[in-house]
Amino acid sequence: MTLLTEPIRETARRSVLCWLATVDAQGQPNVSPKEVWAIADDCHVVVAHIASPISARNIAQQPQVCVSFVDVFVQKGFKLLGAAREVHAADPEFATWAKPLLAMVGQRFTIHSVLVVHVKSVAAIVAPSYRFYPDDTTEASQVQSALRRYGMGSYKK
């Protein structure tokens, strides 16, 4: 079953960061921005462990995670719930999972391991304006609002 459809993949491509939420053995949550991540296939997201010791430790203790990402201009995105595991550089499957991440970083960062998330469910994230003001809110109006807020001239989808 394809959970990570083309619209989800397209939003992921337009999202600079994702946010990985984990929880430790005592139930303390941790949310961490991740710069190097990708949708690997129809049901997996891969995240590079570059500087993520807390995320990796938490996943070893409690695999349930949430990955969220948003196109900040359109102000829409997705929340992915699933179970994660860490694949170390010495593991035979590392090269397969790390391939899209290594293509992103080249020699810029060392990827210590890959956090592989098996996605179990997907939910849309939308700015409240879409729900509370549906007649006045469009993707174009949200983009224009974001451009003004960020002091930018244009945006390409």
Rank of each mutant, 00 (worst) to 15 (best):
E35C: 02
E35I: 02
V36T: 14
I39Q: 10
A40C: 13
D42L: 03
C43T: 13
H44T: 14
V45Q: 06
V45N: 07
V46E: 08
V47Q: 06
A48Y: 05
A48S: 14
S52H: 07
P53Q: 11
S55C: 14
A56N: 01
N58M: 13
N58C: 09
A60Y: 02
Q61L: 14
Q62R: 15
Q62G: 06
P63N: 13
C66M: 14
C66F: 04
F69Q: 10
F69K: 07
V70G: 03
D71F: 09
D71I: 10
V74E: 14
Q75R: 15
G77W: 12
L81C: 10
L81F: 09
G82L: 14
G82P: 14
G82K: 11
G82E: 15
A83S: 14
E86K: 00
E86I: 15
V87H: 02
A89M: 04
A90R: 10
A90L: 07
D91G: 04
D91M: 04
D91N: 08
P92S: 01
E93F: 00
T96E: 13
T96C: 02
A98Y: 03
P100Q: 12
L101W: 05
L101R: 03
L102N: 04
L102H: 06
V105I: 12
V105P: 01
G106D: 03
Q107S: 08
F109V: 00
F109G: 00
V114I: 09
L115T: 13
L115A: 06
V116F: 02
V116E: 04
H118T: 14
V119W: 02
A123E: 13
A123H: 12
I125D: 04
